[in-house]
Amino acid sequence: MPFDPSKIRARLASEKKPYSIRNLAGGEADVMLYGEIGWLGTTADEFVADIKALSASQINLHLSSPGGSVFDGIAIMNALRAHPAPVTVYVDSLAASIASVIAMAGDRIVARQGAEFMIHEAAGLSVGNADEMREMAELLDRQSDKIAGIYAARAGGSVEDWRAAMKRETWFSAQEAVDAGLADEVDQPTRESERAPGELAVAASWDLSVFRYAGREQAPAPEPVALERESHTLHGDIRTLIGEEVATQLAAAVAPPAEPVVETTPVEPEPEPPATEPEAEEPAAVDEWAAMTAHLTQDEPDAWSVLVSTLTTTASSSAATEA
């Protein structure tokens, strides 16, 4: 934020805190956090001490701030998260810079009609040599990664996705913040909600020229951030609101169809027939008559043939011996 000596003088001259906490009936508490975050506005040490001492069953944080100190803002966010009571954040007018990180402390985040969100990379001043400048650049990169991780944890997407949106200095209208996952709903105006943010006019007094764009009207439309939301899952808070039975029915309705299971009845194999021993072949019947008459059919040897056969066999044996 630009340097404004008048704010320093006003802060030193007044002991009034730049935020207020008011206890309501039924255990609720309204916390009004307007103005800069840090030593020109709400500091973490005062705010965190008061939040820790707050005994409430529900905290309603009304937020409208152009941002300020990264370290104070993160400490404020963590103090709200650590409180045992549920926290509903109402962005009454502007949640810019580190104030958009404080908004992420809400269990429920409501963007009022006409409200705006702005995210950008961490910035700072440094005086010194080249090593000191590099140290500052590394510090700013670490803080920007940390902030991008907070957005990603709330809205989905990756640190790289949100760093890219932060580099562009992205402004969101109330509905655009809901679409991006930075808020849960846009508040429908009622008589009560119209009266609640009595200090909304303070936003007109902020000098937004320190930013690249002086509000959503001067900024281009936000580019979609690649979201990695869980599908086919109902969160616990939704189940509480609609009931376990209805939640189970909704989960079944949105879940992808399961693979059909075909039930089959096992078919018992047919029993194999018992093995039978091969029948032994009956020996051929002996023709007794043929056996008795066989000698009658054989020719008697010719005497000349017997003599020649004997001579041939003897000659062949002698030749084989000589060979």
Rank of each mutant, 00 (worst) to 15 (best):
M1V: 05
P2L: 06
A13H: 08
K17S: 10
I21T: 07
G27T: 02
E28Q: 11
M32S: 15
I37A: 01
T43W: 03
A44Y: 04
E46S: 14
K52I: 04
A53W: 00
A56V: 07
S57P: 02
S57R: 08
Q58K: 14
N60F: 15
H62N: 11
H62T: 06
G67I: 03
M77C: 04
N78T: 02
A79E: 01
L80S: 03
A82C: 02
P84T: 08
A85E: 04
A85I: 08
V89A: 11
V91R: 03
V91M: 01
L94T: 01
S97N: 13
S97C: 09
I102G: 01
I102C: 03
M104Y: 01
A111M: 14
A115V: 05
F117W: 05
E121G: 09
E121D: 09
E121K: 14
A122G: 05
G124R: 02
S126G: 01
V127P: 01
A130K: 06
E132Y: 10
M133Y: 00
M133L: 08
M133K: 01
R134G: 00
E135R: 09
M136D: 09
M136A: 08
E138S: 13
L140P: 07
D141F: 09
Q143T: 11
D145S: 13
D145I: 15
K146M: 13
A148N: 00
I150V: 11
A152E: 01
A153W: 05
A153K: 13
A155I: 09
E160N: 05
R163T: 01
R163L: 15
A165G: 01
W171E: 02
S173I: 02
A180V: 05
D184G: 10
D184I: 12
E185N: 02
Q188Y: 03
E192K: 07
E194T: 15
A196M: 08
L200Q: 09
V202Q: 08
A203G: 09
W206Y: 15
D207I: 03
S209E: 06
S209V: 03
F211V: 06
A214F: 00
G215D: 05
R216M: 04
R216C: 02
Q218M: 05
A219M: 02
A219H: 02
P222Q: 00
V225Q: 00
E228Y: 08
E230A: 13
E230L: 13
H232P: 03
L234S: 07
H235G: 13
G236R: 12
I238R: 11
I238H: 07
I238C: 09
R239K: 07
V246K: 11
A255G: 12
P256A: 13
P257K: 11
E259M: 10
P260T: 11
V261Q: 11
T265Q: 10
P266K: 04
E272I: 00
E272W: 05
A275S: 05
E277F: 07
E277R: 05
A280I: 08
P283H: 04
A285P: 11
V286N: 01
V286E: 03
W289H: 10
A291L: 12
T293S: 09
A294I: 15
A294Q: 13
H295K: 08
D299L: 13
W304P: 00
W304V: 07
S305A: 12
S305L: 08
V306T: 15
L307V: 06
V308E: 11
T310V: 10
L311M: 15
A319E: 11
A319P: 04
A319R: 10
A319F: 12
T321Q: 13
A323K: 07
